[in-house]
C-alpha cells in the first residue's frame, strides 16, 4: 500500500497499461520493438522534463518557456560547429552546453535584473534565441558526424544510448535533490521563498543555478535529438514545450512547487510516447487521439494529487 501512495506510481501504471494494450493488439508481437522505441523517444522528453521539473519546483510562477528555442539554438550551433567533421562530437557537445549556459544566464538576467515574471522573460527571450538560430544557419540541415549519429541511434546491452544518458541524468538530479545542500535549498525556496531567504538560503543563487540547469538540459536534449534524427531543424523543439510541462505534472511533481519527483518524470515520458502509439495502433483519428490523451492526462493528475492529499 505504501507504494500506491507514491505520486509517481500513477505515471508508471499508465505507461505499463498503454504498453500492455498496444501489445495486446498484436498478440505480443513487436513488444521489444515498442519498448525500445519508447525508451529512445522517452529519453528526450525525460531530459527536458527533468530541467522543467527543477524550475517548477522553485515555486509558483517559475517556468521556462524558452526550452524549444534553447534546444533549436544549441542544436543548430553545435551541428554548424561540427560541420559533419569526424571526431568533432566533443566540440559540438561543448558548444551545445555553452549555448545552454548562455541562454540560462540570459533568462535569469531578465528575471532578476528587470524583475520580469519568468513566463514573460523566457517567452520573450525564446523569440530572440529562435531568431538567432534562423539567422545563424537559415534552416539548413547539417548532418551530425558519423560517430555521433551512430552513438545517438545506437544501443548498449539492448538499451538505447540516449536512454542511458537520460537515466544517468535522472539519477544525478535525484542525488542532487535528495542528498545535497543545494537540493534542500531548492526545495526550501519552492515551499516558501520568504522563509527560505530569512533562513539564510542564498535564494538568488539557487534560482540562477536552476534556470541555468534547465537551459543546459534543454541544450543537451537538442544536441542529442539533432544527432539522433540526422540534423537540426528550426521547428525541432516545438513539441517539447508542452511535453516538458506535461511530463512534470503527470509525473506527480507539485505544480505549486517545493516538491519534485524524479521517477515520475521518466514514467510520464514513457507514457506520453506509448499513449500516442497505442491510439495510433488502434486507428484512432487525430481528434479522438487528442481528446483521449487529454482525458487520460487529467485522470492521472487527479489520481496522483488525491493520493498526495490523503497522505
Amino acid at each position: 500500500m505504501k507504494l500506491l501512495q507514491k505520486p509517481w506510481i500513477w505515471s508508471w501504471v499508465a505507461a505499463v497499461a498503454a504498453f500492455g494494450l498496444t501489445i495486446a493488439l498484436t498478440q505480443g508481437r513487436g513488444a521489444s520493438e515498442l519498448g525500445y522505441a519508447a525508451l529512445s523517444f522517452g529519453a528526450f522528453a525525460a531530459i527536458v522534463g527533468l530541467g522543467q521539473m527543477l524550475v517548477i519546483t522553485l515555486g509558483p510562477g517559475n517556468i521556462d518557456l524558452s526550452i524549444p528555442a534553447s534546444m533549436t539554438l544549441a542544436a543548430t550551433l553545435a551541428l554548424k560547429a561540427m560541420g559533419a567533421e569526424p571526431g568533432s562530437a566533443w566540440l559540438g557537445l561543448l558548444v551545445a552546453l555553452g549555448v545552454g549556459l548562455g541562454t540560462g544566464l540570459a533568462n535569469f538576467a531578465l528575471i532578476w535584473a528587470l524583475r520580469l515574471p519568468p513566463i514573460i522573460a523566457t517567452l520573450a527571450a525564446s523569440l530572440v534565441y529562435q531568431s538567432i538560430a534562423i539567422w545563424s544557419n537559415r534552416g539548413l540541415r547539417i548532418k551530425p558526424p558519423e560517430a555521433l549519429a551512430d552513438f545517438a541511434t545506437g544501443r548498449m546491452a539492448g538499451v538505447p544510448n540516449v536512454a542511458i544518458v537520460a537515466v544517468v541524468l535522472a539519477a544525478l538530479v535525484w542525488l542532487v535533490l535528495e542528498r545535497t545542500i543545494w537540493g534542500r535549498w531548492l526545495l526550501a525556496c519552492g515551499q516558501n521563498l520568504r522563509a527560505a531567504r530569512l533562513a539564510g538560503v542564498p535564494v538568488e543563487a539557487v534560482r540562477a543555478a536552476t534556470y541555468v540547469a534547465v537551459a543546459v538540459f534543454a541544450s543537451l536534449a537538442g544536441y542529442l535529438l539533432a544527432s539522433f534524427s540526422g540534423g537540426a531543424a528550426l521547428n525541432m523543439g516545438s513539441e517539447y514545450l508542452l511535453m516538458s510541462i506535461a511530463v512534470v505534472v503527470i509525473g506527480g511533481t507539485s505544480i505549486a512547487g517545493g516538491m519534485s519527483n524524479v521517477p515520475g518524470v521518466w514514467g510520464a515520458s514513457l507514457f506520453m510516447f506509448l499513449v500516442v502509439s497505442m491510439l495510433n495502433s488502434y486507428g484512432a483519428g487525430a481528434g479522438v487521439r487528442m481528446v483521449l490523451t487529454g482525458v487520460i492526462i487529467i485522470g492521472i493528475v487527479i489520481a496522483a494529487s488525491t493520493r498526495r492529499a490523503r497522505q
Binding site: T22, I23, L25, T26, R29, G30, A31, E33, L34, A37, A38, S40, F41, L225, F228, S229, G230, G231, A233, M236, E239, F273, L274, V276, S277, N280, S281
Partner: peptide, 14 residues
Amino acid sequence: QDVAQKAVAGILPS
C-alpha cells in the same frame, strides 16, 4: 522528420 520518425517508430510494432 523527427516527429514523423517518432510517430512511425511507435506504430510500426503493431
